[in-house]
């Protein structure tokens, strides 16, 4: 269990990235959902020992992660949000290099591990090609391969599917799902489907604060029977906004479709729909925005 208590961070230019974040993250897939600038990456980097918080603690079972960074790094696998590669080095050579740095110093063991990882992420056929020639999806897969070196107990994956085409995304999520159950995997993303598809537990972060924490299904169930949908014209939108709580708007074949939160049918013309995680997500964010405005 990863226990995060009261984590806060303010950057030198005054931005308050994290405000007293507290979370309990057990083994398995944990989704961290939030818009850009919410503080997800700051949180990820802090757990990954790349950044020091101003206050707060992070404990993995009994081990204090912030105290001994090197020890932490030995059981960590981190796939950053933006990372580069050495363009002229082959995937195999790079992975081998990282394996040594992570501590797999025995040569034979390392060779086997690297081969296994490459096969697992389906890069075995491309292992001798230079990293500079890889497509975006292949790079992400390489990234997860290096994160999985050495059986990490804590895997942090920061916005991994942004920029991948649907098939690549699918492949990647399948990879993540295979990761064992004795491992804490934190997947941070702003793509709601990723969490719906993959995670048993989640938290929603907005403006540095935890807005919701718990199981996705439970959160969705809490909105049962309270979500209504209607297709309208664009110019009507302002009118509806004034009258009721709009959860989300989207375009459907060129026309505007709104989801509304109400305990009962708000108006004729609306139909009830089963809530999904997006409704929960947008709802929470809007609630926070309204609270801040007040």
């Amino acid at each position: 269990m990863l226990a995060i208590r009261d984590l806060s961070k303010t950057y030198a230019n005054g931005v308050k990235a994290l405000r007293g974040v507290s979370l309990d993250i057990p083994n398995g897939m944990f989704g961290l959902l939030g818009p850009n600038g919410a503080g997800k990456s700051s949180l990820m980097r802090t757990i990954a020992t790349l950044q020091d918080p101003d206050q707060g603690s992070i404990k993995l079972d009994t081990m204090d992660l912030l105290a001994d960074k090197r020890a932490t790094r030995r059981l960590l696998g981190y796939l950053p949000q933006e990372f580069g590669v050495y363009p002229k080095v082959s995937a195999e050579a790079m992975l081998d290099h990282f394996a040594v740095l992570k501590g797999v110093t025995a040569k034979k063991e390392r060779r086997e591990l690297v081969a296994a990882l490459l096969r697992q992420v389906n890069l075995w056929d491309a292992r001798k090609r230079k990293l500079g020639t890889y497509s975006g999806g292949m790079r992400q897969r390489f990234g997860i391969a290096q994160a999985l070196i050495g059986d990490p107990r804590l895997v942090i994956v920061d916005e991994p599917t942004a920029g991948l085409d649907p098939e690549e995304r699918n492949r990647f999520l399948n990879l993540l799902a295979e990761i064992g159950e004795r491992v804490v995997v934190i997947l941070s993303t702003h793509i709601v489907e990723d969490v719906t598809d993959l995670c048993q537990r989640m938290a929603i972060i907005g403006q540095g604060e935890v807005l919701l924490s718990g199981e996705p299904l439970e959160a969705i169930r809490s909105l049962d029977g309270r979500v209504w949908r209607r297709t309208i014209d664009k110019h009507e939108l302002d009118g509806y906004r004034a009258r009721m709580t709009i959860l989300s708007t989207r375009l459907m074949a060129g026309r505007t479709q709104i989801h509304v939160l109400a305990d009962s049918l708000p108006e004729p013309g609306f139909e009830a729909v089963a809530p999904d995680l997006e409704d929960v997500y947008f709802g929470r964010l809007r609630a926070q925005a309204t609270a801040k405005a007040a």
Binding site: R45, R70, R73, P80, Y86, F98, L101, Q146
Partner: peptide, 12 residues
């Protein structure tokens, strides 16, 4: 090359 974070999260 922006590989910094890959390196710094290893125990090196």
């Amino acid at each position: 090359q922006r590989t910094a974070e890959l390196y710094f999260t290893t125990p090196v």
